[in-house]
Design a protein around this nucleic acid. Sequence first.
DNA 1: ATCGTTTATCGGCGATAGGCGATGATGTTG
DNA 2: CAACATCATCGCCTATCGCCGATAAACGAT
Lengths: 117, 117
Amino acid sequence: MSKQLTVLEPEVCCAPLATATVPAEAAADLALAFKALGDPVRLQLLSMIASADGGEACVCDLTPAFDLTGPTISHHLKVLREAGLVESDRRGTWVWYRANRPRMASLSAVLDIAPTA
Amino acid sequence: MSKQLTVLEPEVCCAPLATATVPAEAAADLALAFKALGDPVRLQLLSMIASADGGEACVCDLTPAFDLTGPTISHHLKVLREAGLVESDRRGTWVWYRANRPRMASLSAVLDIAPTA
DNA sequence: ATCGTTTATCGGCGATAGGCGATGATGTTG
DNA sequence: CAACATCATCGCCTATCGCCGATAAACGAT
């Protein structure tokens, strides 16, 4: 929603992990994102959001997909938000989430394996 | 999608997160790996190992790079091992670690963003 | 066999994370 | 306005995490 605090530095780094030692500051930011992905519920939430039709998913559609309470889902969404993986947008009664695709792409690139090692 | 079918998977699936909702079992395995990456020290350890000359790194070279004790580094390496991200190999006095590149590639693929959404 | 070196495991401690119910903030509708 | 619905935040509890010192296990050298 109107969470004015978003990732100020979206593109933190992209050097593949296997090509050079990641600096400490970059490691902190990357670890924050990977930690957010390190939970089955959040992983499914992100996949539901990213694969949703139109690229957006309403919380009202996400919550009933789990055997968890509303506050818990809201908490997980907050973690994903603060990790810069999703963005939210309140439209009327409902809140819609969409994936931050550049962020995901950057994480994917970090894990990418160089063709020749 | 292209006709690139990967025959040998290390553990689990590889369907990009943004194309379909990830099943619960796959989410558990993926979350385990991402959780292992969700720590700055482990992220740097993996990058040091993966980018090391010859693709291998000795614990004796890893430990002094951090302001942490031996047991703590050993613990982090164990987490990476149990997540399937690295493999270890004792050769004489020292233990050498190398990255599990297929595993990393599979995680990278999961976060990959489809060209057209 | 005994020592020194390297790495892993064990036990414990403080900090963090995931879960819930209760409450609050926001928006729609009657 | 009041009543309702949706979603977020708060407080609390338990479980897990990250860290250390102490100890054990594996190996080479003496």
